[in-house]
Design a protein around this nucleic acid. Structure first.
Length: 421
RNA sequence: GUGGGUGUAGCUCAGUUGGUUAGAGCACCAGGUUGUGGCCCUGGGGGUCGCCGGUUCAAUUCCGGUCAUUCACCCCA
């Protein structure tokens, strides 16, 4: 019986892995520019961490976590998002005593039991960045700017909002709730349940009648406390000064309970219904909530599968076939080829030879398909004279070469120079 | 969790109004006079027609279920 990969997961075959590696290289380079160091943490945590971190109202905690018991009966959960883990590590290692702000990033898989569709998987990789200990809007710009740099040229719109602080949000939410309750009979079934759980979600409903009501509902941005309103205004000024285009969008409501103040999303309209490539914001209360010193903090998560979809949608430059290394075709004895391959690899050159006892013609075909830079036949003549002929597989030109690894490396470098200068 | 579409070769898809050995293109392998790839020609391997059950003399084809996938909702990256 055939066993297939679990639902909502995917394999990366070598060609696709190359794209991922190129992306990861790009991300690490940008992180370096912004001064964010890489952090790595476990794939699973105590279930309690996510329950307390993300809040118990959201779907993710409610029904999408991969939770299991280990042999000691502890409840563990495959990480559904990165922020809780980073905050846990921040507290556990006493990083509030380190140079603040503490800025870090991670590229790591998350796990959620969701129904898969385009741009949504049960295991998906996120780039996440977090910044601890900075309460000024400059920090918000720093984080948003990072995402903006990563998404440059991908046609993703930045939507930002403020959902208020501990002081003004509860007041607003209560007001909104009573306002909406007054006409709950006009709301869709879904929104009626949302009323209790998270009334701000009603503002983002796609049902026409609900959207019409949402139009007239009180807006959070008009009901912020002076502190939050001032913060938002200063953030707008800084974003504008940084040349980062954005729209204020009162419908942006993040799904996790820990968010406070600034929230934002980068949205692409070209990758299907799951258009949010990046989402994040401030969580000034989370460190304290999880047992640390009160510490302002913020960050974002970016779905790399969606980022790659957006890149494809942008018809990014096709990666050209790269020709690397050498193929040694044995005629008769394979001994010298096997030996030379090992030697060349020691010297850092990709080297391959025949593993199937195929005809020379078949070997040349294979050498062409796997994209080596050079090929050479090694038979009795070559062994006798200690000389061989190197063939450039792109141009077809040939060059004599001594039969040893050092000479091969030297000649190949020459060929490379001729080819690319 | 809800609602629709789709499952035939490694890939992209034809086809079967139910009836002998199920097709194409691409890919793969081999040959086209025994030491040089890409083009061309010839040949070849490869499919329990997703899986289980039902109707029938007969199911890949019809029906039901299931699994997978895909699109949307919900939610999120």
């Amino acid at each position: 019986m055939k066993i297939e990969k679990p639902r909502g997961t995917y394999d990366l075959l070598p060609d696709e892995t190359r794209k991922w590696q190129a992306l990861e290289d790009d991300l690490r380079r940008i992180a370096e520019l912004y001064g964010f160091g890489e952090i790595r943490f476990p794939m699973f945590e105590h279930t309690e961490l996510f329950m307390r971190g993300m809040g118990e109202t959201g779907d993710v905690v409610q029904k999408e976590m991969y939770t299991f018991q280990d042999k000691d009966g502890r409840s563990l959960t495959l990480r559904p998002e990165g922020t809780a883990s980073v905050v846990r590590a921040f507290i556990e290692h006493g990083l509030h005593m380190s140079a603040l702000p503490f800025k870090c990033f991670y590229i790591a898989p998350n796990f959620r039991y969701e129904k898969p569709q385009k741009g949504r998987y049960r295991q998906h990789v996120q780039l996440g960045i977090e910044c601890f200990g900075a309460a000024e809007p400059q920090a918000d710009v720093e984080v948003i700017s990072f995402a903006h740099t990563v998404l440059r040229g991908l046609d993703a719109e930045l939507h930002i909002n403020s959902i208020g602080c501990k002081e003004c949000r509860p007041v607003y939410q209560q007001n909104l709730k009573t306002w909406l309750s007054a006409q709950s009979e006009k709301l869709c079934e879904n929104c009626r349940t949302r009323l209790d759980r998270n009334p701000m979600r009603v503002l983002d409903c796609k049902v026409e009648t609900c959207a019409a009501i949402a139009e007239k509902a009180p807006k959070i941005n008009e009901n912020l406390c002076p502190g939050c309103a001032d913060f938002a205004a200063r953030l707008d000024v800084l974003l504008t000064a940084s040349g980062i285009p954005f729209v204020r969008d009162p419908r942006i409501v993040r799904g996790f309970d820990y968010y406070t103040g600034t929230v934002f999303e980068f949205i692409s309209h070209q990758i299907g219904a799951q258009g949010t490539i990046c989402g994040g914001g401030r969580y000034d209360g989370l460190v304290e909530e999880l047992g640390g010193q009160p510490t302002p903090a913020l960050g974002f998560g970016m779905g790399l599968e969606r980022l790659l979809l957006a890149q494809e949608a942008m018809a990014k430059k096709e990666q050209e076939k790269t020709y690397r290394g050498i193929y040694l075709a044995p005629m008769g004895t394979v001994e010298e080829c096997v030996r030379l391959c090992r030697e060349l690899r020691e010297l850092g050159v990709r080297a391959e030879t025949d593993l199937c006892a195929r005809s020379l013609k078949a070997q040349m075909k294979y050498a062409d398909k796997i994209g080596v830079k050079c090929a050479a036949v090694i038979g009795d003549d070559e062994l006798e004279k200690s000389k061989m002929t190197l063939k450039d597989m792109q141009t077809g030109e040939t060059a004599p070469c001594a039969l040893n690894a050092g000479a091969i490396v030297k000649h190949m470098n020459l060929l490379v120079e001729v080819e690319y200068t």
